[in-house]
Design a protein around this nucleic acid. Structure first.
Lengths: 148, 148
DNA sequence: TATTGTTATACTCTATAACTATA
DNA sequence: TATAGTTATAGAGTATAACAATA
């Protein structure tokens, strides 16, 4: 495998991470959200009321960081803190109606983006691309695990 | 184009941005660098001595942010500040030998990663993937420009 | 004793605004 | 008058460590 062919592919991937990130940020700003807070809200939307501890695990982040993110989302009206019914140490985080609406809008935005990106493609080609990305993905994951 | 086929492809791309970012961070930490500082150092390595103003433009960041990044890189011994020979307002930023070595190591690491990722691939398939990513890339760029 | 979430502290990236020294 | 880089200030994400309340 020629090195320049491989590096060309990696370069495109790295550039895509930048450009996609920029596009995402635009959508998030419209909902009054940052990337990290949107991530938390999205996880929450998928699971229902969740303790901060569980969120820390899900986001792969320390409990202290979750405190900050939840503080921000509470102040912006996207979520509420409620006492855990049986464990008085724990807090349950729940989306407000506005928070749930924002999460739905984000999910919808992702579908829109996918539609816009691949509108002109043949389904076969998209599936081939997905398969290729899957292969790269599992390889990277293996490499990360090996090196840690 | 079925929506689920398109969203599957986008999902892999978004997941790859996360995983690739994690892998990159590992390499950077080994050089005592953060992502932003590594980016600056990398640009510098490609251009030679550069004013902070030019770095701000190249990184698409405010001059104040460059001040902070250069402060950090100077403290860690990766770069030096020197007076501009003709414009006494300006500062020229130059990599130290250690900084240049770190930049080379990063570049080498990227080649290593590319090699590892695509070792088992046929060159044709890698080129097809690159072409696909190129198409997605230019589409995203169009979308970002339209929405701004 | 172990766990949940907090306060305390610190570092990084980012931005805007005001200011100094120069062009 | 305009530009280069700084100080001042602020917000966000992240981390570790110490601590209170609870299990």
């Amino acid at each position: 495998m020629p090195v320049d062919v491989a590096t060309a592919a990696l370069d495109r991937l790295l550039e895509l991470t930048v450009v996609l990130g920029r596009d995402m940020s635009g959508h998030l700003a419209g909902q009054g959200l940052t990337e990290s807070r949107a991530h938390l809200l999205f996880v929450l939307h998928g699971t229902g009321p969740t303790t901060q501890r569980a969120l820390a695990d899900a986001l792969d982040v320390t409990p202290r960081t979750v405190t900050g993110l939840v503080d921000g989302l509470e102040a912006s009206g996207h979520i509420t803190r409620e006492p855990h019914p049986t464990d008085r140490r724990a807090t349950l985080v729940t989306p407000t109606p506005a928070g749930a609406a924002a999460a739905r809008a984000l999910a919808e935005g992702r579908v829109e983006l996918a539609r816009a990106l691949f509108a002109d493609w043949r389904p076969d080609d998209v599936e081939r691309l997905t398969a290729g990305l899957d292969a790269v993905l599992s390889r990277v994951q293996t490499l990360v695990e090996e090196s840690s």
